[in-house]
């Protein structure tokens, strides 16, 4: 009778692997910096991405008729330790916007203009990179460094 149980176990194992693989393909998000997106180029196209960067105020264009929003973000470090080491989020965002050599990414989003969208805000955009190198966002989260310095990292992810 053992083979029956073995077969049953293998079926369950296969099911678990299938569930993990299919969920990863459709729902995993890769958290990249702007620099990493630029370096990966073609390779990053089509994956679910989450990219964090500094909003460059001069580039914000909003068309209230079509609700389409377009802005550029500049590269900032991906992890909190590096941000702290460079003088905190506000300082990092400020430097990123001033430095024209930083990699930049154009973001396109359709929807109401977020209240916090302004120069030197931190944008966390979720979506996909198009073939044209433009990031098409499904979601734009913004953090204002002065007040949100101690805000919850988990809260953004839970939205």
């Amino acid at each position: 009778m053992r083979p029956k149980f073995l077969v049953g176990g293998l079926i369950i194992l296969a099911a678990v692997i299938y569930l993990i693989v299919s969920a990863t393909q459709s729902n995993a998000e890769y958290f990249l910096t702007v620099r990493q997106v630029r370096e990966q180029g073609e390779q990053a196209v089509g994956r679910n991405l989450r990219v964090s960067g500094a909003v460059i105020g001069d580039t914000i264009q909003y068309d209230a008729e079509t609700l389409s929003l377009r802005f550029d973000i500049a590269d900032i470090p991906g992890d909190n330790a590096a941000i702290e080491a460079q003088g905190g989020l506000a300082e990092v965002l400020h430097q990123a916007v001033l430095d024209p050599t930083r990699p930049r990414l154009t973001v396109v989003y359709v929807g109401p203009r977020p209240d916090l969208l302004q120069n030197e805000a931190q944008a966390i955009v979720t979506g996909r990179l198009g073939e044209d190198g433009i990031f098409y966002a499904d979601e734009v989260l913004l953090k204002c460094p002065t007040r949100y310095e101690e805000s919850l990292p988990g809260q953004a992810g839970n939205e």
């Binding site: 569930l19 729902n27 995993a28 998000e29 890769y30 958290f31 990249l32 991906g78 992890d79």
Partner: peptide, 11 residues
Amino acid sequence: KITFGPPWYER
């Protein structure tokens, strides 16, 4: 970094 959000777990 890769993140598995609620949709991943739910699915």
